[in-house]
């Protein structure tokens, strides 16, 4: 038996399609998770104690259980409560909710890190709540939370592989199926590792670029 990359690479078009699906799920899941997480963080911060407590439970539940278990329960358990979803839709929904739970905690840390005086200054010059949110809090928070957001987004990419257990035709499912069919496990998983790694490096580079652009307005005052 020899290490035969060509065999796996001969499935190039299928692999590329699967790669496209993985990227689409990753981008959509992360993007929606970021937005949903932001609203969860805002609601928990400004919605009063009952809202905070109400939202704490799902966030803790999501963060306290493996993604594999969550996605399995959503797809196979959903129909028991009248929630029958297409596997890709279930995958995207699961990924979004999973991401939102983590992203909401990162946004929350960002809110906490903005010095109170910056908001008082906004108040004193007459900015109202939504103007302060848009013009001061959001941009200032973005630079504070960017590194941890990039980190979480990298984790999100790797979590898309879990969606193979509900047969979403993403990269891991397709490439490992090729490996199983042709008994080329090492080759297929090598390809898999390289593709994920490449995407992670791309994401990391984009993050570093953004950080460099933002670095000139780092805090100088404690």
């Amino acid at each position: 038996m020899s290490f035969d990359l060509d065999l796996v690479l001969s499935f190039g078009p299928q692999i590329l399609t699967a790669l496209a699906i993985t990227i689409a799920l990753w981008v959509a899941g992360s993007g929606l998770g970021l937005v949903l997480g932001f609203f969860i963080a805002v609601a928990r911060r400004y919605g009063g104690k009952p809202v905070d407590t109400l939202l704490m439970l799902p966030v803790e539940l999501i963060r306290g259980t493996p993604f594999l278990v969550q996605i399995f329960l959503l797809y196979y358990g959903g129909p028991y409560v009248g929630l029958s979803l297409d596997k890709t839709v279930a995958g995207l929904l699961g990924l979004t909710v999973y991401g939102a739970a983590y992203y909401s905690e990162l946004w929350r840390a960002g809110f906490d890190a903005i010095p109170k005086g910056h908001l008082e200054a906004a108040d004193c010059v007459g900015l109202d709540r939504s103007q302060t949110m848009r013009r001061i809090i959001l941009p200032e928070m973005t630079m504070l939370v960017l590194p941890s957001m990039v980190n979480m987004t990298i984790l999100m990419l790797k979590e898309t592989a879990i969606l193979s257990i509900i047969s979403v035709p993403e990269l891991t499912l397709v490439v490992s199926a090729i490996g199983t069919e042709y008994y080329a496990f090492v080759e297929s998983f090598t390809i898999l590792a390289l593709l994920y790694w490449g995407l992670v490096e791309l994401c990391g580079a984009a993050g570093r670029h953004a950080e460099r652009r933002l670095s000139k307005y780092r805090f100088s005052v404690s």
Partner: peptide, 26 residues
């Protein structure tokens, strides 16, 4: 108008941005 002990300039805006912000937004 209020001036704070800790200055409280917004770090993501230039000096010009800090001074002109409320003129535009408010």
């Amino acid at each position: 108008g209020m001036v704070f002990q800790q200055f409280n300039l917004w770090p993501h805006m230039t000096a010009l941005g800090n001074v002109s912000e409320a003129l535009v937004i408010v």
